[in-house]
C-alpha cells in the first residue's frame, strides 16, 4: 500500500478488467497522493494501458475507483473528465489540421463550458513550460515532430488544469535526447504541484522521477514501494534496470 500518499487523489481497489474471457488486469490496488508522481512500470503487454483505460472509464471494469474524495465505483468517462482526470494516451491523439494553439484551447474546453474563462493565463503557463510550443503556435499540429507532438499532448492536458494527470508511456518511440527532456519536464510539473500517474516501460527514467512505484506483470502488481527503494532492489535491477535498459526476464514470483 502506498503509505507515502497523504491526501489521496486516486485510490484504486481490486480493479479487474477482462477482454472476453481473458482477464488482463487482476485485483490491482494503486493510489496516488496529492502532488505525487506515482509510476507503474512493466513490460509490453503487462496491462498498463488497460489499467489506465479502466481508471478513466473508457473500459469496463470490476472493483472500485475513488477519485478526489468521492467513490466512483465503476468510473464513467465523461464524469471523470469533468471531475478533473486527464489521460494523455500512448498515441497522443491531436487534431493535425488545427494549429498548435487551437489544440491547446480545446484542452480547456471542459473548463470553459463550466464557466471558467481563464484559459489565456493557463496557456501562458503551458508556454512557459514548453517554449517550443509557443514558437510554433500558429503551425498545424500535423507538422510537428514526435517530440513536439508529445509536448503538445501534455500541454493540452495541462490546459484542463487536471487534478490527476495520467501519462501512458510518454517516452515511447522518442530518441534518448528528447526522452531526457520529457522526464525533466515531468519533474518540473511535480514541482508545480501536479499529481501524476505515469505508466512506463522505461523503468530507469520512471523510477528516477517518481515518488512511489508499482511493478505490473501479466496483469498483476508484482511489487511496490518508494521508487528509490525499488530502484535499489536486486530483483528490479536484474529484470528492469539491466544495461541497455531491456527487461528480458520477468521477476520471479
Amino acid at each position: 500500500m502506498n503509505a507515502t500518499a497523504v491526501n489521496k487523489v486516486l485510490e484504486v481497489r481490486d480493479l479487474c478488467v477482462s477482454y472476453g474471457k481473458v482477464e488482463a488486469l487482476h485485483n490491482a490496488n494503486v493510489s496516488v497522493g496529492e502532488g505525487q508522481i506515482v509510476t507503474v512500470i512493466g513490460p509490453n503487454g503487462a496491462g498498463k494501458t488497460t489499467m489506465l483505460s479502466a481508471i478513466m472509464g473508457v473500459l469496463g471494469s470490476r472493483g472500485r475507483v475513488d477519485f478526489d474524495g468521492s467513490v466512483e465505483g465503476v468510473p464513467e468517462v465523461e464524469r471523470m473528465v469533468a471531475r478533473g482526470m486527464n489521460l494523455v494516451p500512448e498515441k497522443r491523439e491531436l487534431f493535425g489540421e488545427m494549429s498548435v494553439e487551437d489544440n491547446l484551447v480545446l484542452g480547456a474546453f471542459q473548463r470553459y463550458r463550466m464557466g471558467r474563462r481563464d484559459h489565456g493565463q493557463t496557456m501562458e503557463e503551458v508556454y512557459d513550460i514548453f517554449p517550443r510550443l509557443k514558437e510554433r503556435r500558429t503551425q498545424l499540429a500535423g507538422t510537428l515532430s514526435g517530440g513536439e507532438r508529445q509536448m503538445l499532448a501534455v500541454g493540452r492536458a495541462l490546459m484542463a488544469k487536471p487534478k490527476l494527470l495520467m501519462l501512458d508511456e510518454p517516452s515511447l518511440g522518442l530518441a534518448p535526447l528528447i526522452v531526457r527532456e520529457i522526464f525533466r519536464i515531468i519533474a518540473e510539473l511535480r514541482r508545480r504541484g501536479v499529481s501524476i500517474l505515469l505508466v512506463e516501460q522505461n523503468a530507469r527514467a520512471a523510477l528516477q522521477v517518481a515518488d512511489y512505484a508499482y511493478v505490473l506483470e501479466t496483469g498483476e502488481i508484482a511489487m511496490e514501494g518508494p521508487a528509490h527503494k525499488l530502484a535499489d532492489d536486486p530483483r528490479v535491477i536484474e529484470a528492469y534496470l539491466g544495461l541497455g535498459g531491456k527487461h528480458q526476464d520477468k521477476l520471479a514470483h
Binding site: P131, R132, E135, S145, G146, G147, E148, L174, A175, L177, I178, R180, E181, R184
Partner: peptide, 20 residues
C-alpha cells in the same frame, strides 16, 4: 548543464531534437 542540455534538445533536428 541543465539549461545547456535543454538548449541542445531545442536546437537539434527532429526526430532526435525539437528542430529549433
Amino acid at each position: 548543464f541543465r539549461r545547456i542540455f535543454s538548449k541542445l534538445v531545442a536546437a537539434a533536428p527532429p526526430p532526435i531534437g525539437l528542430g529549433g
